[in-house]
Design a protein around this nucleic acid. Structure first.
Lengths: 161, 161
DNA sequence: ATAATTAAGTCAATATGGCTGACCTAAATA
DNA sequence: TATTTAGGTCAGCCATATTGACTTAATTAT
């Protein structure tokens, strides 16, 4: 992944500079989730609902088990959030071909909410990266990816097959 | 900030690719906080305690007001967490020169815990970026910074003056 | 000198998002 | 037929955050 002719020493960034990165991650993540949080609040939903809507939108007919692997929460935690989304008409549950499983899909209003929430984040990213060149964007994406642990890399890849 | 000779069209990344970035941010943030979370759990602390310890370590003698501006939580929320940290001997409170204010500092064990937690994240970042060249790392840092809203950019700058 | 503002603290109630443990049903598979 | 798997449910617990109302003490402005 790295160009061997251009490898930096691990000490190119000293500890003080690394600490700045820790802060940038904290502040940027908080600001990144703040937009959707505001929309969700009006519906009496939280970030957990957003995640479910996002990943059901990402992978139509996703099963409970798959969703649990992505979210890494307990089924009891998912259950509460999911039941609310179903009851309020944002998600539709159907039985899978393996009749033990269930397939989740967004309803029309689910799709609409998903869109509203994602648009905020997509617009933000588009706006930010429009000020950078291909090399910067590549670096951003590649390093983000390498920050992920192996098992979640697999989950990410699987989601994007 | 961007090289005008190398500006990309905002459509260089299509929506599908932008959505991948959303996922990378989610997974990487979760994995980034997972390490410290494990340590904190043993002490019956949570991520909120980590943040307080981090920023008190960052800026010795920080006041409650400053800390509230950084963390963007209510004083009631901070109060609970901070009182625990004081009671358990990780943070020391003294009166400021303006006698209405209080200055927070890490005790010896506070410093030791701060170090243990930060080392996990610093080591991780060092390990990750050691595989990338200067351009990639620059892109990563610059784009992270631009993901932050103006008021928090100011907070970040202030912390690093 | 008094009034207003500021920094900090506190009490109470509420919501969200997570957890563990125990237990159940129905369907698929060994 | 026995076991495993997918999913659900009840109950209780904890952490993190919120709003609102109110207090104290110190500083600053009039």
């Amino acid at each position: 992944m790295a160009d061997l002719n251009n490898l930096i020493s691990p000490f190119f960034l000293n500890e003080k500079e690394i600490r700045k990165i820790i802060e940038l991650v904290f502040f940027s993540y908080r600001d990144f989730t703040a937009g959707p949080d505001q929309i969700l609040e009006k519906l009496n939903f939280g970030r957990a609902h957003h995640r479910v809507i996002y990943f059901v939108g990402k992978k139509d007919k996703i099963t409970i088990k798959e969703l649990l692997r992505v979210l890494k929460i307990t089924k009891q935690s998912l259950s509460r959030v999911l039941n609310q989304l179903v009851k309020e008409g944002f998600i539709l549950v159907s039985t899978g071909s393996d009749k033990r499983t269930k397939n989740l899909s967004l309803t029309t209003s689910g799709l609409s909410l998903e869109n509203e929430l994602s648009t905020i984040q997509i617009t933000k990213i588009k706006k930010v990266i429009s000020n950078f060149n291909k090399e910067d964007i590549d670096g951003f994406i590649k390093i983000l990816y390498e920050m992920i642990e192996a098992d979640n890399k697999a989950t990410f890849q699987h989601l994007n097959e």
